[in-house]
Simulated assay, not measured.
Amino acid sequence: MSYIPINIRPHLVPFLYQEFEGREAVYLGKKVSSIKIGADSSLGRSMRLYTVKADFPKRSEYYNIYLTLEELPDGKKKYEGNYFRMESGKKSFLQFTPEATTEINNLLEDIFRISFVYFVDGYTKHPDASVKSAIDYFIDKYDLLEFGFSNESMRQLYYREKGTKLDRLKEQSANRVTNYKKP
Rank of each mutant, 00 (worst) to 15 (best):
I4R: 09
I6H: 00
I8S: 07
R9Y: 03
P10C: 09
H11T: 04
V13W: 02
P14V: 11
P14S: 13
Q18H: 11
G22C: 08
R23D: 13
R23P: 03
V26M: 05
V26S: 10
G29R: 14
K30W: 06
K31D: 15
S33L: 13
S34R: 13
I35M: 12
D40V: 06
S41E: 07
S41R: 03
L43D: 01
R45Q: 08
S46V: 07
M47P: 00
R48M: 10
L49M: 09
T51H: 06
K53W: 07
K53S: 10
A54M: 14
R59F: 04
E61P: 04
E61L: 04
Y62C: 05
Y63G: 03
Y63A: 03
Y63K: 02
I65L: 05
I65H: 00
L67Y: 01
E70D: 15
E71P: 00
E71S: 04
L72T: 10
P73D: 05
P73L: 02
K76M: 09
K77G: 03
K78I: 03
E80R: 08
N82F: 07
N82P: 00
M86D: 08
S88N: 08
S88W: 09
K90N: 02
S92N: 04
F93I: 07
Q95D: 05
F96N: 02
P98Q: 05
T101L: 02
T102E: 06
T102S: 09
I104F: 01
I104C: 01
N105V: 07
N105L: 01
L107I: 11
L107E: 04
D110W: 09
I111M: 07
I111R: 02
S115A: 06
V117I: 12
V117Q: 01
F119W: 09
D121Q: 15
D121H: 11
D121V: 01
Y123W: 05
T124I: 10
T124R: 05
H126I: 04
S130P: 10
K132A: 00
S133P: 04
A134P: 08
Y137S: 12
Y137W: 06
F138V: 12
F138M: 03
D140W: 10
K141S: 13
K141L: 10
Y142R: 08
D143M: 12
L144D: 07
L144M: 14
L145P: 00
F147V: 03
G148T: 13
S150A: 15
N151D: 08
E152R: 07
S153P: 08
M154G: 09
M154S: 09
R155P: 04
R155I: 11
L157Q: 15
L157D: 14
K162W: 02
G163E: 08
T164E: 14
K165D: 12
L166P: 04
R168K: 06
R168I: 12
L169E: 11
K170V: 13
Q172E: 14
S173P: 06
A174R: 11
R176A: 15
V177T: 06
T178W: 05
N179R: 14
N179T: 11
N179E: 15
N179I: 12
K181D: 07
K181V: 15
K182L: 13
